[in-house]
């Protein structure tokens, strides 16, 4: 559990395994094969591979064309170029037509780091969450990524898998399972804990921050609950209502704008039935600057220290 995984290898290897058995998978690249990890797919399965060049909109359309003929089409590029550049194609062509297109976004949010504000995706979750029929997985480690890719193939219709740049530290054991619409309680604060009770809700790279924050807080005698919510859509409504019902404050942590991301999804979910105060950590409606991933996480308060600070202020 102390290792890391290269997300490129996870994508390439998982697809290879799937494509050995499933002849209906095609892979569409957008001139970023070596970043996605699909370069071997082109060599091994040339008849199931398309490179659309630097043309995201056309790439999504071509994938839709394959899907309309019964194929399961994967498309990958940077998160922002799928979620916002090709947003209309994902909405009107893929989702409206209910096509089996799997969108894999790389370099999620601040993991794009020094590439700067034009490359740091802060609006992709907002766009994809609003698309009817779209399922979204915001993955945190290599094991979960492989499971999410398999879960994408196993479900009909559009899927968006949001992948950080990596390499990603291993967070989950081999027996971890990923399920659409299911969150995972990583730490549960004891019901006997004194004072106000806080629950941290994370996904993607913020789950590692959340785990570390929970550990640090524990050392200081502050018991918190930590929920990992990889399936951002559909979100685990039952678990959220349960957590909201048994905690005083929820702290969501987005590697995304606070508008439209995980925090927004949590608020929308609990507002009607189990309203509780929600503190949304994330990128505060600004563009990110060119800094390292760690520096950006600190600046936007989504690293372990930022989460600890927010919890202490809330309880």
């Amino acid at each position: 559990m102390s290792g890391t995984k290269d997300v490129k290898k996870v994508y390439g290897n998982t697809l290879q395994e799937l494509m050995q058995e499933n002849k209906d998978i095609v892979v569409v690249d957008i001139d970023l094969m070596r970043i996605a990890g699909s370069d071997d797919i082109k060599k091994i399965f040339p008849d199931c591979h398309v490179n659309a060049g630097i043309a995201e909109q056309n790439a999504v359309g071509i994938a839709a064309g394959f899907a309309s003929m019964g194929k399961c089409a994967f498309v990958s590029t940077f998160c922002g170029f799928l979620g916002t550049r090709a947003s209309d194609q994902c909405l009107d062509t893929v989702c409206y037509n209910e096509l089996d297109v799997k969108l894999l976004g790389t370099y999620a949010g601040v993991s794009s780091g020094i590439n700067g504000g034009t490359h740091i995706s802060i609006a992709d979750l907002a766009a994809f969450r609003a698309m009817p029929g779209m399922k979204i997985a915001d993955i945190s480690d290599g094991t979960e990524m492989a499971l999410a890719i398999r879960a994408a193939v196993a479900t009909d219709g559009p899927v968006y898998i949001r992948v950080p740049k990596g390499p990603l530290p291993d967070l989950f054991e081999e027996d971890y399972t990923f399920q659409w619409g299911k969150g995972t309680v990583l730490t549960l604060a004891p019901t006997s804990a004194a004072g106000k009770k806080a629950a941290i809700i994370t996904s993607g790279i913020t789950t590692a921050s959340g785990k570390e924050a929970a550990r640090m807080l524990q050392e200081e005698g502050i018991a918190v609950t930590h929920v990992h919510m990889a399936s951002v859509k559909p979100i685990d409504e039952d678990l959220l209502h349960q957590i909201a019902g048994t905690h005083d404050v929820l702290i969501t942590v987005d590697n995304h704008s606070v508008i439209g991301g995980l925090g927004a999804a949590v608020c929308e979910s609990i507002a009607a039935k189990t309203p509780k105060p929600v503190i949304r950590l994330g990128v505060e409606d600004v563009f990110c600057e060119g800094m390292t991933e760690q520096e950006l996480m600190a600046r936007h308060g989504i690293d372990a220290q930022g989460i600890c600070k927010a919890v202490k202020e809330a309880v």
Binding site: D47, C48, V50, Q57, N58, V60, G61, I62, A63, A64, G65, F66, A67, S68, M69, K71, A73, D88, Q89, D92, T93, Y96, N97
Partner: peptide, 24 residues
């Protein structure tokens, strides 16, 4: 109707995907 359309410019890409499927 093989594909729903409306947002202009998108249909030809879908047709390309269909035709490439048929070739392959």
């Amino acid at each position: 109707v093989d594909v729903s359309t409306g947002s202009l410019g998108q249909g030809l890409s879908v047709a390309v995907g269909m035709a490439l499927y048929a070739k392959r």
